[in-house]
Nucleic acid binder design. Structure first.
Lengths: 256, 256
DNA sequence: AACATCGTTTCATTATATGAAACGATTTAC
DNA sequence: GTAAATCGTTTCATATAATGAAACGATGTT
């Protein structure tokens, strides 16, 4: 399991372990809370927090709790990986969102998961709560299944071998063979559905975005609550997001 | 000069000093290059880089040079400070950009500088190269002068006292008294101009965005090259960005 | 073939991160 | 209104982990 046991700088590892605590739902942390969460000594935690604060990676709110700081915002916006994809997907996604009044996602396959690069939120009250930059399971999302379906055979095999298909809902595909069949169907019909496979009440539809060599580079999905996301709308949705996908593909083709 | 000399974790400080090297124009670094840049020993630099890579804060490109990694993208997108402003400014900015085909910026005043929270790029070839999350001098930008002009008297005084008004071009306002006069004019006419004060050939116009208590919270600016950014367009530009500003102000007012 | 440069590893030395305990300041409980 | 609990912070002796000069093999250049 432990790959190259390099001699890492433990203080830096600890600092990022602390920052990782902010990835969850809890956005504000005190010293003792974080010490408990990370298992580090209270003094150690305190000094790491002070250091991260002085660097701008964290900052205190008016209750003296720590928040992620603007230094991370600055650095995060400078990450060049997938930067062109993020940029050229922006307008097409806005266009889709204007026509379909549901949440639209744009993501790529990264480290065996879906990495969300962009999104536009539904203007309606009931909406999905995802984060740009966050990861999601591939096998139980429409966007993930599309990305998987159009990957190389090797990658699919590797994915099926290394991923445990845990049930998220009663509809989750938990059998590798069944997933393979589903992927085959997705390749044939050129879109994927997620019928409450990740979360009960949540339905998604996704299509692939292809690059210059007709290899898949990303996927666009539309998500909505089952209460208003009806199967008879699928053709309509597909037409709209396919238009967006074609816009993105054109931008990719023209990208130097 | 050195405030509280707390005992910071030096390894963590070094790690972020390394990350800060990527803030400049150079986006790819090797071990020896970074060691030279930071002044750290080659071995130390190597180990810090390895650590940051294993944490996902950096990653290697196909030439084995280091790039900022997706962990920073993830964390950066989770920064909650100004998050609502970023989100609710997005659509209005897109609308402005669709009408004016120039680069539009949206920023706030932070630590005596302009912090860019959002932008939409000009579709034209010639455009400004700024970064969301990056900082810019306030006294020689339209957006900065607006933010400054509508700040409290105390803040303006503090700014003038602590900031050295270095010339960026021959048009830069380098005299505090002259800047005060300029700010007064901006308050009166409710917009600011940057006539090649930051960069020769670059002209900007900016207006304030007010919050619930009529205190300034942000500013919108339009930037373009002097070759096509003509003063007779100002009234037209102002009308369009004021519409956007009003949309944002409305969202702020309705924000719980 | 000789040289320069790259990232990487070694190992003795030093510096620094560590944590239990005590601290004063707030906040909560009674 | 007093006591108790909890908060972030500081201290200091100790041990651990970061350090850097030198040597390393690999790669690319002259």
């Amino acid at each position: 399991m432990n790959e190259d046991v390099k001699d890492l700088n433990l203080s830096v590892v600890k600092a990022f372990t602390i920052l990782d605590a902010f990835v969850g739902d809890k956005k504000e942390w005190g010293v003792r809370e974080l010490a408990k969460k990370t298992g580090y000594n209270k003094s150690t935690t305190y000094r790491l927090l002070s250091t991260l604060e002085s660097l701008g990676a964290l900052q205190k709110n008016n209750e003296d709790k720590y928040l992620l700081g603007l230094k991370l915002f600055e650095l995060g916006n400078l990450v060049s990986i997938h930067k062109s994809l993020r940029k050229l997907s922006r307008t097409p996604l806005e266009n889709i969102a204007r026509e379909i009044k549901e949440t639209v996602h744009f993501g790529v396959f990264d480290k065996g998961q879906v990495l969300y690069l962009n999104k536009t939120e539904s203007p309606q009250g009931l909406k999905v709560s995802t984060q740009i930059g966050s990861y999601q399971k591939a096998y139980c999302t429409a966007i993930g299944k599309v990305l998987l379906a159009f990957s190389s055979e090797d990658e699919i095999t590797k994915y099926l071998k290394t991923t445990s298909l845990d049930a998220c809902t009663e509809n989750t595909i938990t059998d590798a063979k069944a997933l393979e069949v589903a992927l085959k169907k997705i390749r044939k019909q050129q879109y994927a559905l997620d019928m409450e496979e990740l979360e009960l009440g949540l339905i998604c539809i996704a299509i692939p975005v292809f690059g210059k060599n007709n290899d898949i580079v990303a996927s666009i999905s539309v998500s909505g609550p089952s209460s208003r996301f009806k199967l008879e709308n699928i053709d309509n949705y597909l037409a709209i997001i396919k238009k967006g996908a074609r816009e993105i593909e054109e931008s990719i083709a023209n990208y130097n």
